[in-house]
Design a protein around this nucleic acid. Structure first.
Lengths: 253, 253
DNA sequence: GTCGTCAAAATACTATACGAAATAGTATTT
DNA sequence: AAATACTATTTCGTATAGTATTTTGACGAC
């Protein structure tokens, strides 16, 4: 008779419930399962996720620090609204300050590990082309997020990496995208700007534009062409800004 | 007989216990009441602050997001260590990316409100000169924090402002300073580097250097000299880096 | 009908106690 | 001495109760 009962295939837990809750709530915000600007009821959320209030509170506190949730004393939590046009422009201006520099640094610091990581990420983007259209959108935004994050990491500067991660820029872009999508489907099919967004987005999502620009950045970094990497990143961010700007504009009219 | 009983001078509460707890714990980290790298026991902290665990948990979750507290699954929270030399350099490099730009923008956007705020902040620095030496240190670091924060706000870019605030750079500098101070007092009075730090710091703290550099930035902004503001900010951050760099080095040997 | 008042319900916030699970430290056995 | 077993501590999560505040909605005055 075994002295100690065998744990039922549960390896050592690497994350705790409050971390999982954080990820789940973040995902719910990303996918508009909790709409932008909506109230977040702690009891209801705890019930829905099947956990007690404690992990929920910790998750919401962290999300507040992330700027994804706003807290009003004694009135509770609510998700932040979609980016305003100004916030959108501010965000891209900020990226223009740090990311071209990061690309430049990466080209100077690049090594075999970095090259392998970049190649792998570019490869994942190309395989994403095989997915269905609806899956492509999500896949490409995730690739874009990983790609830009990777370059800040290769740059070697922790502060820059953290600052970039905290912008959650791809999460915000995805929320904008989803809002535009539902708006397109629901009630305003002839909104010129939203249609335009989708044209522009799928142009990106289908990989032609984003992949091309990422390829230019990636190869410049891998060949150690620091100035080339810098200007390629500048152009890419500017191009991304131009693509998404109309969406931000019309959704916050 | 008055129809409604007068509330006993208790206006609507603007912050809740968990917010106050957050500030208190942050202050405890700042002042080394909780030493760098030390474990943070939730029960003990709750007992000490006279609150229950719930607000403590929320506060620690937020501080973790801030990068001031680290969390290890099932092992609890502990304060982050002092900045390593690399982190220190990364931080200042990051500031060099965003703050000169912010100063340049501020010079372009400056208006009467901004000028008044800058003048007031410069005035507060000068009145801090009248304080005792020990109070000056705290006062000057606080002035420095407010001054740099103010400029990012005047720049008008929310992302830049937030990114700067989140670095908590002055909090980290103050922790470095305190660590050097205790080291100087305690056991290694003839440490050349630490003495050097204090020489450099008081040179700054006495206001001669910092005030001069801040004055140059401030007046360039107020006169709309954008390029001048940019280079003045660059020089100031570089100068600050040079002053503190030896301290970071020796304290992390 | 509009506005304000007031009570009831809902919700946020805090406190407290308890238990499960993991870690860390100590003692025991091999 | 190394491996194992045991104990103590701590973290983590749950449950529950109670207070404070906001929200709601009905009622009545204008």
């Amino acid at each position: 008779m075994p002295r100690k009962v065998q744990p039922v295939a549960t390896g050592p837990r690497r994350s705790v419930l409050s971390d999982e809750t954080y990820d789940m709530v973040k995902a719910m915000i990303l996918t508009h399962e909790i709409a932008p600007g909506a109230k977040v009821n702690i009891d209801a959320l705890a019930l829905k996720l099947g956990v007690s209030q404690t992990p929920i509170r910790e998750a919401l506190a962290r999300l507040e620090s992330d700027g994804l949730i706003a807290k009003e004393a004694l009135k509770g939590y609510s998700t932040t609204n979609l980016l305003t046009v100004k916030q959108f422009n501010d965000l891209f201006q900020f990226r223009l300050l740090i990311e071209p520099w990061a690309a430049e640094q990466s080209a100077q610091n690049i090594n075999a590990v970095g090259i392998a990581a970049l190649k792998a990420e570019m490869q994942s983007a190309k395989t994403a082309l095989k997915l269905s259209e609806s899956e492509q959108v999500q896949a490409f935004i995730e690739h874009d997020a990983r790609f830009h994050s990777l370059i800040t990491r290769i740059s070697g500067n922790e502060s820059v990496t953290e600052a970039f991660e905290r912008t959650h820029c791809h999460l915000h872009l995805f929320r904008l995208f989803l809002a535009a999508q539902s708006r397109l489907i629901d009630d305003k099919p002839k909104d010129k700007f939203v249609e335009d967004l989708f044209y522009r987005y799928y142009q990106t999502g289908s990989g032609q534009l984003t992949i091309k620009e990422h390829e230019a950045i990636s190869s410049a970094i891998c060949t150690g062409d620091d100035k080339g990497a810098k200007t390629a990143m500048q152009k890419h961010i500017q191009s991304s800004l131009d693509r998404f700007s109309p969406a931000a504009k019309v959704l916050n009219k």
